[in-house]
Structures are given as C-alpha cells and as structure tokens.
Amino acid sequence: MVLWFRKNLQNIMLAAIAMLLATSVNVNAEVVAPVVPKGKGEQCVEPTDVMRKNHMEMLKHQRDETMHNGIRTKKHALKECIACHVQEDEKGQVARFGDDGHFCSSCHNYAGVNVDCFQCHADRPQELIGKGHKIKPHHTADFKDKAINKEALQALTEVSK
C-alpha cells in the first residue's frame, strides 16, 4: 500500500509540474536545448530518450529497493549516475549541483524543476569530494528566466518509437 501511495504521489506531482510548466510555455521562443555535459562512458545504462523521460522513475524505484530491501545493484543507482556524469574539467574543477555545468542541474535549471536529492546525497563522486566550490544552502538553483518552452519539453521527453 505504501508503494501504491508512492507511485500515486509521483503521478500527482508530475501532473502538478506539468500544469505549472504549461502555464509558463512561451510558444514563440526559439528552441534552445540545454547544454548537457557528456558522461564518461560510451553508452548510458538505458537509451538516452528513455533516461530523459524516466530517469526519475528509475531512481525512485532503486531508492526504495535499496533503502528498504538492501538491493544494491548498480545499474540504476544515483551514485553510479554521478560517478559517470560528474567529472573534473580541464582546470581540475568539478561542477556542483546548481551550476549549469553540473549534469543534473544543466537540465533541471533549464526546465525550472527543483530536485530534492542533493541536500543529502553527494553531488559528485566520492573521490572528488573536497573539490569544487561550496554550495550555498538553499541557493542551489536559480530558476529565474528559465521558463521552458513546449518544443524543448517535447524534445527532451519524447521517447522514440
């Protein structure tokens, strides 16, 4: 029953987010996709379009499985996403969550969708902890002027047939 609630809760949240986004759609704007940093490996654990659309489902499923059942498979684990997608740049700097250069926030800043992961979870691989600037509490993302347009949203979430 708890699981049912969680699934349902997510749908409610998604519907709410979609409604919020719908109100801020600017149809005349040019389609500019966010610049997403490239991952370390050749290929993600799932096809890119599936990840774009469903990464939150997978993360959430994995989160509950790990938390409550001790399942520690790596495929859909947040830790592994971070390990692959958050890297040092040429200057030896690492982007923090909230920076446009951080894999997660590159898109989330753009879409104006806040996430509640990195108040607790490490936003960079363990070996890079200590590198990168400090995150200012509560100022993790600035969503001003980041309203997404309809085409960009479609492009980001459409799953190829």
């Binding site: 691989p125 363990q126 509490p137």
Partner: peptide
C-alpha cells in the same frame, strides 16, 4: 543545519 560533502554511502 545544512550539511556539505556527505559520504555517498
């Protein structure tokens, strides 16, 4: 209070 640099595990 706010924490920084938590362990990933």
């Amino acid at each position: 209070e706010d924490l920084q640099d938590q362990k990933d595990h």
